[in-house]
Amino acid sequence: MVAHADIIVQSVMGGLVLASVLTWTVALAKTFELMGANRRAREGLGILAGALNLGEAARGLAGKPGAAAALARTAAAELATSDGAQREAVQERVGWRLERIVANAGRRLSRGTGLLASIGSVAPFVGLFGTVWGIMNSFIGISRAQTTNLAIVAPGIAEALLATGIGLVAAIPAVILYNAFARAITAHKALLSDSVAETMRLLSRDLDHPNRAQLRMVAE
């Protein structure tokens, strides 16, 4: 059916097959990316939860990739440069910076998921266009043959309906995967929020320490 379809219908089918390949490629890459990010976030959360102060947390996460390590380093650096600053001011500045780290981590993980959303919403209509075009050609063939014999009409209609089928095959997985990744990214950001809470706890402990200057030297 594909070989005998109109060139427009063939182009539609080819584009939908390419969209399906892209969907599964993005899904595979994003799955591994999320698995690695969650593993690093859980490891970082464990180190933050077990640390006694920001300096210890920063040393434990030194050289490690991931957002949790960036949270500890950022908070320790801000504490080290806030000589004589008021407690509320330090916490506010650290909170702003940690919020941006979590937001940037979410944006990085969201890259590529927009393609899944586009394929899921557009592919059925592209397939429908191929179907409409194929059926139109079938009616033109009927007028030229001057007959309504089903043997003449059926092949063209079947080719046209195949385009809709391929469109659904491309769209349905894309929508399911997009929703799954959206939930996974939300769960990852919640995990990072736990790391933020642990970082702020360590910052509060350091700010309460009677010798903040010594802690700043350790953080540095």
Rank of each mutant, 00 (worst) to 15 (best):
L61M: 00
Y178W: 10
H4W: 00
A182Q: 11
A89M: 10
L18N: 05
I140G: 12
I119E: 04
V17H: 03
A154R: 04
V21F: 13
G50A: 15
L79K: 05
A117D: 10
I185W: 02
A174C: 07
N53P: 06
P173N: 02
R205G: 12
S204N: 14
F125W: 08
I157T: 01
N149R: 11
P173E: 03
A213W: 03
E220F: 02
D83R: 14
P173W: 03
S110Y: 07
A184H: 07
R205E: 08
L28W: 12
G14H: 05
V12S: 03
L215F: 01
A49K: 15
G141W: 07
R59L: 13
A72C: 08
A5D: 09
S11H: 06
F32T: 13
Q86L: 09
A37L: 08
N137P: 03
L54R: 00
S204R: 15
G112N: 09
E198G: 12
L203P: 05
G141Y: 04
G63I: 00
S20H: 06
G46W: 04
A3S: 13
G46S: 14
Q146L: 05
A184V: 01
T186L: 10
S143T: 05
A163R: 03
L115W: 09
R111N: 11
L34D: 07
A145D: 01
T164D: 10
G50R: 15
V102R: 14
A76L: 02
A75H: 06
N179E: 05
F139A: 13
R39E: 12
A3L: 14
L192T: 09
R144D: 09
A197I: 12
V17S: 04
V94H: 04
L45I: 11
V196F: 04
I166G: 01
S110H: 12
E220N: 11
G60S: 04
K30P: 11
T148P: 06
V90C: 07
G36P: 05
L16I: 01
A184M: 07
I142T: 07
T147Y: 00
P155L: 03
R144E: 13
A213R: 13
I185T: 07
L128M: 12
G84H: 06
K64S: 07
A171W: 01
F125Q: 09
A29M: 15
A123K: 00
E198P: 01
M1Q: 04
L71A: 10
